[in-house]
Simulated assay, not measured.
Amino acid sequence: MSVAVCLLLYGFAVAVLAPRVLRRISASGAAPRIAVAAWVAVMISTLLAWTVTVTIIVVDIGTHKISVLPARFLDTCLLHLHDAAVGHYGRHLQTGLLVLSFFAALAGLVVAFRLATTLWRSRRSTIEHAHMARLAGRHHPELDAVILDVDHPAAYCVAGKPHTIVVSRGVLTALDDHHLEAVLSHERAHLIGRHHLLLTLTRGLATVLPRIQLFTIGAAEVARLLEMLADDAAARIHGRDTVLQALLTMAALPEQSDTTHAVLRARVRRLSEPPRSHSRTAAVAATLTAMLIPVAALIAAATGIEVCLT
């Protein structure tokens, strides 16, 4: 089977099967760092597989260089496609294939342009948000955070120049000093780990390709797992119980969205009932397997291309 067909089938298989499999693997949050790596690796490898597939087909139709290859490297499907591209089946079909390849390449360029535009707009919006938060609030030197004088509960970080941690008056009123420090450590962990870069990438892919669950579900799962990673970082400094009590207090505050409450409940459940050691081991093993599959596929594809071109 040809490299193009292998990559095409791989991309569609992963796009369909990976969301359900990876979601089950990462549900407990047993190994959030590796689970995040698995989601990102699968999303990127799927995009690469589709990109290489389109490139191979367009180059084949445009240059006809595939005709110098032995037939054993190609499927019957691509052989017929090549014959049609060089005009063996008539000019009408040849013209149709050339037009189809042009639109396939154009669609790939449009997706790439939209993704680049989305990432650039997200970056600009984040920087402007950080600037407006510093203007609207007051800097608290001891907390190294910007305080907003609003009762709505909010505690978040914004990547910018410089990075900014924002805390509302409602959170300051509800939390004591120890719990507030745990919340601030959680937000600092996001900034130190550069979690905003992963969020920007995954949310950008979900925006550009909203009908593909691999990217929409993946963006939500990566965001949830990054929250758990930041919880672990805060727990190493202040202790698991302190972080848990801070989350319980935050979860009890009113005027929060259903999504925020759902994420908080998941984080509370994970901290109150840590995953067992065998669950963690199983999650790590399964996630590593999910990461190695796309890597192996790309290596096989690269090897196949090299063999075909020699």
Results as ranks from 00 to 15, higher is better:
3 V>R: 02
7 L>R: 06
8 L>C: 09
25 I>N: 08
25 I>D: 04
30 A>N: 03
38 A>L: 09
47 L>W: 04
49 A>R: 01
53 T>V: 11
56 I>M: 12
61 I>L: 14
63 T>C: 05
64 H>V: 02
66 I>A: 14
68 V>S: 12
69 L>P: 02
71 A>K: 11
71 A>Q: 09
73 F>Q: 12
81 L>K: 01
83 D>G: 15
85 A>R: 01
95 T>E: 07
99 V>E: 05
102 F>W: 09
104 A>V: 00
106 L>R: 04
112 A>W: 04
114 R>T: 05
121 R>F: 05
125 S>V: 10
129 H>S: 13
132 M>E: 11
134 R>L: 09
139 H>A: 14
139 H>Q: 11
140 H>C: 13
140 H>P: 02
141 P>M: 13
146 V>D: 07
153 P>R: 05
163 H>E: 13
171 V>E: 10
171 V>Y: 05
176 D>G: 15
181 E>C: 10
195 H>E: 06
195 H>Q: 03
203 R>D: 06
205 L>F: 01
215 F>V: 10
215 F>I: 12
216 T>W: 04
218 G>M: 13
219 A>T: 05
220 A>F: 02
225 L>S: 09
227 E>G: 13
230 A>G: 07
236 R>T: 09
236 R>K: 13
244 L>H: 08
246 A>F: 04
251 A>H: 14
266 A>H: 05
271 L>S: 00
272 S>C: 10
277 S>T: 14
278 H>W: 13
283 A>Y: 04
289 T>G: 14
292 L>V: 09
296 A>H: 00
297 A>F: 08
302 A>C: 14
303 T>E: 10
310 T>G: 07
